[in-house]
Write a protein that binds this DNA or RNA. Structure first.
Lengths: 145, 145
DNA sequence: ATGTAAACGATAATCATTATCACATAATCA
DNA sequence: TGATTATGTGATAATGATTATCGTTTACAT
């Protein structure tokens, strides 16, 4: 398996053409893609790849930590590339058009709160916290017009 | 339509027996229920009510603001009664058993951050924010054993 | 009491996702 | 390098959650 700069790095399974094509979609297009978004995009560069393979590999890439999986209120899973160079961020979801945008305002203050919360919740609720998600729902400028 | 204390209050549609039976499930049992949870519970007190009616009314009650709808990462919608007497709270979701528990630690500090964020995001991203969701994912004490 | 739009129950249809299975192939080792 | 083998793949069936349809019932304004 090669990373986006062409250097090898280890992964749990085999590195296949389908797997690379799916990762390429995220590297080239980015965004918060559903399985079907990825499927349609992957067909352009690797027409043979089936939808089941897309699902399997989104799960794989997610387990490998290369992408993150989010469940917004539209009922479909959304996947996003884990880019080390990008800032930690959260999501604004438009309830009208479903578009997702990122924000990273007050991230430092937010992360401080999250850290304090995680410590407190682990203790009081006997709960080992792995991750958190903060989503804002509303209506974007385009939809308000 | 009558509220939990038997007093009338206005609602957008008709107040039916099925609707009342579904609301009763939340009033008596509470928690973070899926449509199927509600269906199984409602069958006990109102055996004739169909699953489609449960879905229709969860949507109705949600639009009326009597319940809130949450999408956790298990793919199913979860509904919770909006109880004025309860503190604002958020959710801890166990990735192993799917159980959801509430927490309200640091709520004051959290709400302050959310308010600041909403103001900032509305301005910078031209986004009218209606609501936010903060979910922590992890493993509960029971599942760790 | 009655007319009518809203809601109902049953069930078919849809949509996202997962399972199955015969075939292909990436990685290992001779 | 070439044979071996477990892992991955494509096509498609199956599943599970939710929504749409349709003929019947019913809440409620008149």
């Amino acid at each position: 398996m090669r990373n986006r700069h062409g250097r090898k790095f280890k992964c749990a399974g085999r590195w296949t053409a389908a797997r690379q094509a799916i990762l390429d979609v995220f590297l080239n297009r980015g965004g918060h893609l559903t399985a079907d978004d990825v499927f349609m995009e992957v067909k352009k560069r690797a027409p043979g790849v089936g939808l089941a393979t897309v699902y399997r590999n989104l799960d794989f890439l997610s387990r490998e930590g290369l992408v993150s999986r989010f469940q917004f209120s539209d009922g479909r899973a959304h996947y996003e590339l884990n880019d080390d160079e990008r800032e930690h961020h959260h999501h604004l979801i438009c309830k009208s058009c479903g578009n997702v945008s990122d924000y990273s305002e007050f991230i430092h203050r937010e992360l401080k709160l999250m850290k304090d919360l995680e410590k407190e919740l682990s203790k009081k609720h006997d709960f080992n916290i792995d991750s958190h998600e903060l989503h804002f729902y509303g209506v974007c400028g385009d939809c308000r017009e």
